[in-house]
């Protein structure tokens, strides 16, 4: 008791003479951190823990701390039931495919455009860059509804057996979930910023040696742009994985649906909350795992996306 008191008073004393007063030291700061930690972590903890419990126990545990603890009758039964109720495997594969293709195409196409704008003499590139950045002020929500009508007018090639035919309408396809989100003004802007920081002497030397522009892009600029690639990948992946409004409107067929649309299935007929929690955990844990593995890039990408406003 005495030692803790001593320690706190020493800390309090240190605070006033601390060389870096931005440090919020002391007990108050830790109480704040822990309380906020509980507020932010416990609902997610509750979700995951409940996904392992039978419905009755979820409700039974609510009135005690057991709601947040993996105790009682634990099993993966809810996860099994999810696959019976929803074509969850299909949805997961769809979402993984859609996100992966969007990220790969997005990194490629946006970095190529940014490379030309940053490195090459292209007539009118000042205007082009300004126009691209101007699109950032338009929230997707304002474009979404005219865009639904528009994609329904676009031509599409259909392969029917060996017959290629031209039909109208992109509704209810994979491409409608991917192609509109590949080119992204903010990704171009981020790549452009990053490419500008790479010394141009490097590619001038390569030009003298007869390297093509594409070779400079591929062999010099891109290998030096790891952080920008990571940032753009994350900023493309998160909305692709989480997309809800768009597929809700443009995808009707069950076999084309992404994971977020799957939640609708749980509110038809009797709701099993254990299954809801299992499905929620299943579509959240991959992202959380990615986040924990690439924390630094995630945080940097979010910090830079704030600049967008």
């Amino acid at each position: 008791m005495a030692t803790t008191l001593e320690r706190t008073s020493r800390r309090a004393g240190a605070r006033s003479t601390s060389p870096n007063p931005r440090r919020l030291r002391g007990i108050g700061g830790w109480i704040g951190r822990i309380l906020l930690g509980i507020v932010f972590a416990f609902p997610l903890l509750f979700m995951f823990v409940s996904s392992l419990k039978p419905d009755q126990q979820i409700f039974g545990d609510l009135s005690s701390i057991a709601a947040f603890l993996p105790v009682g009758n634990l099993s993966f039964d809810n996860y099994g039931a999810v696959f019976d109720r929803v074509p969850a495997a299909r949805f997961l594969i769809n979402s993984i495919g859609i996100s992966a293709v969007t990220v790969i195409l997005g990194v490629l196409i946006n970095s190529l455009a940014a490379f030309a704008l940053s490195r090459m003499r292209v007539r009118g590139k000042g205007i082009i860059l300004t126009l691209i950045i101007a699109t950032l002020i338009v929230p997707f929500e304002t474009l979404a509804l005219p865009l639904v009508w528009w994609v329904n007018q676009l031509p599409t090639l259909e392969l029917d057996g060996f017959n290629l035919s031209l039909t109208t309408g992109w509704l209810d396809t994979y491409q409608v979930q991917i192609i509109p989100f590949v080119a992204n003004a903010f990704s171009i802007y981020l790549f452009h910023q990053y490419f500008d920081s790479i010394p141009k002497e490097l590619d001038e030397a390569a030009r003298v040696d007869g390297a093509s522009w594409f070779k400079i892009y591929r062999k010099i600029v891109m290998p030096l742009s790891g952080p920008a690639i990571a940032t753009v990948s994350i900023l493309t992946f998160l909305p692709a994985w989480n997309s809800y409004l768009w597929p809700l409107m443009v995808v009707q067929s069950e076999e084309l649906r992404p994971v977020m649309i799957g939640v609708q299935y749980f509110f038809q007929l009797n709701v099993s909350w254990g299954q809801v929690m299992a499905y929620s955990s299943m579509i959240t844990l991959p992202v959380v795992a990615l986040f924990i593995a690439f924390q630094r890039s995630f945080v940097n990408s979010i910090a830079s996306s704030g600049v967008k406003g």
Binding site: L44, W241, N242, S280, I283, T284, V287, V288, F298, I302
Partner: peptide
């Protein structure tokens, strides 16, 4: 930061 990477749907 965890809730930020969690989808709004979830």
């Amino acid at each position: 930061f965890l809730p930020v990477v969690t989808s709004m749907v979830v």
